[in-house]
Amino acid sequence: MMLKTWIRKSVTRQMTTIGNKVEAAKMAAAFRAVDENLKPNDRIIGIGSGSTVVHVAERIGQSSNKDSFTCIATGFQSKELIISNGLRLGSIEQFPKVDIAFDGADEVDSKLNLIKGGGACLFQEKLVASAASKFVVVADYRKKSPSTLGVQWTKGVPIEIVPNSYAKVTRDLQEMGAKSVILRQGGSAKAGPVVTDNNNFLIDADFGAIEDAEKLHSSIKQLVGVVEVGLFIQMADQSYFGEESGEVSIWSK
Rank of each mutant, 00 (worst) to 15 (best):
T154W: 00
Y166F: 15
L87A: 12
I250S: 04
E228Q: 11
V56L: 06
R43D: 01
W153D: 10
N65R: 14
L183W: 05
N37Y: 08
V22T: 13
T52P: 02
S245G: 05
I159Y: 00
I7T: 08
D35L: 07
T170A: 08
N41R: 10
W251Q: 09
K39M: 14
V11L: 13
G75I: 06
V108F: 08
E36T: 13
R13Q: 13
V34H: 03
I72S: 10
S165F: 09
A105D: 10
G61D: 05
L183E: 06
A139Y: 08
K79C: 12
S68T: 13
I203W: 00
Q62V: 01
F76C: 07
M1D: 12
F207D: 01
K9A: 15
V157N: 00
S180P: 00
D99K: 07
T5I: 12
M15V: 13
A129D: 14
I44V: 15
V169R: 02
N85F: 03
R8P: 00
K9W: 11
L216I: 06
K168I: 13
I18K: 09
V195L: 13
D197H: 02
I210T: 01
K155C: 00
L127V: 15
G46L: 03
L3C: 02
A101N: 05
V229L: 06
V169T: 12
G75P: 07
E228F: 02
A33L: 04
V54S: 04
R43G: 10
G150P: 03
F241S: 03
W251T: 05
I47E: 09
T154P: 00
I220A: 05
S239D: 00
G50N: 07
A120F: 15
I44T: 14
D42T: 10
G187T: 07
S239F: 02
